[in-house]
Amino acid sequence: MTGGDMWVSRRAAAGLLLLALLFSLVLLGPLVSPSGWDETDFAAFHEGPSARHWLGTTQSGRDVFALTLRGARTSLLVGLFVAVASTGLAAVIGAAAGYAGGRVDRVLMWGADLLLVLPSFLVAAVLAPRLPGGLPVLMAVLAALMWMVTARAVRAMTVSLRRREHVLAARFLGVGAPRVVARHVLPHLASLLAVDASLNVGVAIVAEGGLSYLGFGVRPPDVSLGTLIAEGQGTAAAHPWPFAFAAGLLVLAVLAVNLLGDGLRDAFDPARGGR
């Protein structure tokens, strides 16, 4: 193994390890926390760390440790769902356009181009608060605005793959288009889709955090890292715990998925990884 390969594998392993630690903290932390995220201690407003409240309390008496773990769980859930959904949508639309060609290709790519010229963040900020459904609708809106660039890459690769002998043979034997795409096209795109999904987790987390910070994302009584950062920034100088812990988890989550995504991308592209 060359030095470049070792660096790639170490970077991917570091991202995967950090991501596993974050998920472990988010899933197991509430089990050992002295307080629940939705509990209010009316005898502890804006208190510092203590045996009862490990990272102190907010100005409304809520436990910072439990509250931030709840927010991190929400943000990670949004990131994972949006990444998988947007990459899956890109795979389906791109493969359909590239394999079918003709009018189907033109219509699907016209739709992708139309969405690409729209300011995605502003569209999400306008749509998400006005549609009923809360968090699931927010995730659906984000996923619907993140698939276009990858769909174009999938389409280009599908156009090339559909001319290969094994694909032509399957079509000649009368195999249906969905089965040909599923068995002979999409497996060749697995590396592209895996890298895209991993990197999209970070993009989705940041997008949700930004929307929630501005009041367009996660709605009370639920919380996310974005809402906690917005709530804690006003008192960050005198009482840093609510702001610092949420901001730190947000940075670590994005760093973890970016390390994993970059490591996977370089592993699938030896020329890039060896630089």
Rank of each mutant, 00 (worst) to 15 (best):
G226Y: 10
F245Y: 11
G202A: 11
H166G: 01
P240K: 04
P242N: 09
G133I: 13
P136I: 14
N258M: 10
R152C: 01
G217T: 10
S224H: 11
G134R: 15
A128D: 04
L193N: 00
I205F: 11
L249A: 09
D266Y: 07
F243K: 12
G234E: 10
L211P: 09
V206K: 00
R265G: 07
E231A: 15
G263K: 04
E208Y: 05
V251Y: 06
T150R: 01
L211H: 13
R219A: 09
P129Y: 11
A246E: 03
V175T: 07
R164Q: 15
P187I: 02
L189I: 03
A207M: 12
V141P: 09
L189Y: 01
L252H: 12
R179E: 00
S191C: 01
T235W: 06
L249P: 05
V251I: 15
A247H: 04
A207Y: 03
R272V: 13
V203W: 11
G176P: 03
G210F: 08
N200Q: 07
A156V: 02
V141W: 01
L173W: 10
A153E: 12
L250K: 03
V181E: 03
A246G: 03
V218A: 09
L145Q: 07
R152I: 01
V257A: 06
D269K: 12
R265Q: 08
A194P: 00
D222K: 11
A169W: 09
P178A: 11
V159S: 02
L225E: 04
R155S: 01
F172A: 15
I229F: 11
A153R: 00
R162N: 07
L192V: 01
G215E: 13
V141F: 01
I205Q: 05
V203N: 05
V137E: 08
A267V: 03
V218N: 10
A169I: 07
T227I: 10
G202C: 07
A169R: 15
D262Y: 02
H188T: 01
L250G: 08
P132W: 15
G232S: 15
R272I: 09
R219M: 08
G248Y: 12
A140M: 15
G248C: 10
L127G: 06
A140E: 13
P136R: 12
R272P: 00
D266E: 12
A128K: 06
S198N: 02
L211C: 12
A244L: 14
L255M: 14
A169N: 12
I229T: 15
G202L: 08
V201D: 00
V218I: 14
D222L: 15
F172M: 14
L189P: 02
R163C: 09
A197M: 14
L135E: 04
V149M: 04
M157K: 08
V223N: 05
A197Q: 01
A190L: 05
V203S: 14
A204K: 07
V126F: 13
G174P: 05
G263S: 10
G232A: 15
I205E: 06
L255W: 14
A207W: 03
V181A: 07
V185D: 01
G209C: 11
D266N: 04
I229E: 10
A207L: 09
L252R: 06
E231K: 15
V149K: 04
V175E: 08
E231F: 15
V167M: 13
R130L: 15
A230T: 08
A238E: 14
L127P: 05
M157L: 07
T150A: 12
R171C: 11
F243G: 07
V180Y: 10
